[in-house]
């Protein structure tokens, strides 16, 4: 995994030292009654960069389950991606001693035009499994995700529940020493969620480390040993789960930052001969 460098002799699983990352964001400014026609057409879009994580310093020790407590859009998911290495810090450093499997929007990597089996191979490879490992663990994944009947059918427009189950089962099959989980446990029926939690707890007991983002306080309280409180990209506290959740109540949720997204289904990359 060349793009996720490891520091094997680091004591912690992952260590953030003043890490920060800024992401580009298009903001649609108020157009008003500008006399400038061109501006009215463009809608005066500003290309800004916003710091999603700033000056984060903390570490995750082996065998620990650390909750990232914060509101939506507070930079929680970016923190997880930084930890896993699928995002590279613009300032400071993030070092990790073992590969961390990110479960952040896992369903997005599943392709509807592939069969379920193909998706398992694809996502499994993306998460760092070798072909041989996938072959070996395929029965387990199929059983856990309960997709035996549709294994060779196209995933197509199957429900989010099925996608969630598949993604989750694959992620667990990686048997990684650390996971970064974001809301992954909110998909599926209660019985499946229950099952997931049991697996997570089992792994945790066996010494696997976790970074967890969840909007359900009960899950965090039940499962995590420690918490990081984060707001607007800044780490406010490194404390107990209860304390972090209490303090979160005093922080106003961010105003609805409706930012401007350009949908691009454009055909810019259609090749023409001449």
């Amino acid at each position: 995994m060349p793009h996720v460098p490891l520091t094997p002799d680091l004591g912690a699983v992952v260590s953030f030292e003043g890490a920060g990352v800024r992401l580009p964001k298009l903001n649609r400014r108020k157009v008003g009654r500008s006399r400038n026609r061109l501006k009215r057409i463009r809608g005066d879009v500003a290309r800004d960069e916003i710091w999603f994580v700033r000056d984060a310093t903390f570490s995750l020790q082996p065998g620990e389950a650390l909750a990232i407590v914060g509101h939506l859009n507070s930079g929680r998911d970016q923190l997880l991606r930084l930890a896993a290495g699928t995002l590279i810090a613009d300032e400071g450093t993030v070092r990790r001693s073992v590969p961390i499997v990110p479960l952040v929007g896992l369903g997005g990597a599943l392709g509807g035009s592939y069969t379920v089996r193909q998706n398992i191979y694809l996502l499994g490879s993306l998460l760092g499994m070798t072909q041989a490992e996938i072959v070996e663990r395929l029965p387990g994944i199929v059983e856990r995700a309960d997709v035996g009947k549709i294994l060779d059918k196209f995933l197509g427009d199957s429900s989010r529940l099925v996608r969630g189950r598949i993604a989750w089962s694959i992620a667990m099959a990686t048997q990684a020493p650390a996971f970064a989980i974001s809301q992954a446990l909110t998909v599926g029926q209660p019985s499946f969620q229950q099952q997931c939690w049991e697996i997570v707890e089992e792994r945790h007991a066996a010494g696997v480390s976790f970074l967890v983002v969840s909007d359900k306080p009960s899950e965090l309280k039940r499962f995590c040993d420690r918490a990081i409180l984060i707001d607007e990209g800044r780490v406010l506290a490194d404390t107990t789960v209860e304390d972090a959740l209490d303090r979160l109540k005093d922080i106003p949720p961010p105003k609805d930052q409706v930012h401007f997204v350009i949908d691009d289904d454009d055909d810019d990359d259609d090749a023409e001969l001449i």
């Binding site: 995994m1 060349p2 793009h3 996720v4 991606r81 896993a84 290495g85 699928t86 590969p99 499997v101 990110p102 479960l103 952040v104 929007g105 896992l106 997005g108 990597a109 599943l110 996502l123 490879s125 993306l126 998460l127 760092g128 691009d264 810019d268 990359d269 259609d270 090749a271 023409e272």
Partner: peptide, 20 residues
Amino acid sequence: AQMSGVFRKNKGELRISLLP
């Protein structure tokens, strides 16, 4: 021609991919 959109089109994969 496909190169200019390659990373935009593979957003979902890039987010979680531990591969180069």
